[in-house]
Design a protein around this nucleic acid. Structure first.
Lengths: 200, 200
DNA sequence: GTCTATAATCAGATAGAC
DNA sequence: GTCTATCTGATTATAGAC
């Protein structure tokens, strides 16, 4: 949405930033408009309501996030092992969130606060991406490289919640985003007590 | 807060429930009052503002959660191994969230949306509990039972985010809370790819 | 396509009776 | 300690000029 600079796109970008930083109720139309270089009523020339604007940001965030992760997994080719694909997805997810994409961070921040009907629609749009994660997890269990003692749904919920959290607490400093991504993958796949090559 | 049934306590209980279910902006004073068996203006006899009420719920949630977890860890005695203590804390945290305590779930739900100054105060109250987790993690690394290749702060942030998430997605059904707790501990400590006794 | 002015709504908060 | 009635302020949304 950043490749063209028309009014509609500037509003969406500004809304994504505001939603990420301040949440649904905290993102005022006046502030969103200011970020887009206009005043609040001008938004209504491009969107019929705040809800419609928010929903567009959600859909765009889901689309961007899923496109990025699927691309980073599928580039491995059809013969990549399930655990290699899962690890690539984990790393790609963190990389993308910490790359500063406001749309995907906005989804993680405000999803729970959406009005019921909108949340249902957003969830429906998210479902194919959710299934993609489920398939990665189930495939790793099916070929014996992952623990079959863990429930695939529980793993998926915990995994996504853990990854999504990083955009709320990460601050540039000691560790670079790529290092956070590696630590997340190591923690999720091998565990904090895990003894793997090179770890003590 | 549920052992006495005075007006103040009923309001706090109702506020915790509403905050957990609907978030900060979604929890209206009129609804909180209704849950306490009164009308909105009556709340002001017990609390000077909605913000004060919310802050009390946050403080109570932190207190309950930390008291429960510390008790479940310290009952192991002074000679328990660091990894045993850490696992007990993980299991206790999930158990408590899924036991239906609205106060601790409310904290996880609305913390990010709190006004800046209140969030600072709540964070300060949380810090000793946060340090408790940090000590559990560092102790496990220090005695060699946990990976020293992982950053202790990153592990703590990911771990707490993952555990906190369960109150938003768990629904009674196939798995009992105690089973979710065990799965969380296995996933965090041994990893999804981890091969431990009994796992495939 | 953006503006100024204003309406409409809603939720937090206050006043004062009982 | 709770109520009814009201006030205040903030925010979404509309009307209509430019």
């Amino acid at each position: 949405m950043a490749h063209v600079d028309n009014g509609r796109t500037r509003i969406l970008d500004s809304a994504a930033t505001a939603l990420r930083q301040k949440g649904l109720a905290g993102a005022k139309l006046s502030e969103i408009a200011k970020g887009a270089g206009m005043l609040a009523p001008s938004i209504y020339h491009h969107f019929p309501s705040k809800d419609h604007l928010v929903e567009q940001v959600m859909m765009e965030g889901i689309y961007r996030n899923s496109r990025h992760i699927v691309a980073r997994v599928e580039v491995l080719g059809p013969d990549a092992a399930p655990m290699v694909r899962l690890r690539a997805a984990i790393v790609a997810h963190i990389d993308f969130l910490l790359s500063g994409d406001d749309y995907s961070s906005a989804v993680a921040r405000v999803f729970e606060d959406l009005p019921d009907e909108m949340r249902r629609r957003v969830l429906a749009a998210y479902s194919s991406f959710d299934n993609y994660w489920r398939d990665l997890i189930v495939a790793a269990q099916a070929d014996g490289s992952a623990s079959a003692a863990l429930d695939a749904t529980v793993v998926r919920k915990f995994l996504i919640a853990m990854l999504d959290s990083c955009s709320s607490w990460y601050r540039p400093g000691k560790l670079a985003p790529a290092q956070i991504a590696e630590q997340a993958a190591d923690l999720l796949l091998h565990g904090f007590a895990g003894s793997r090559p090179g770890a003590m």
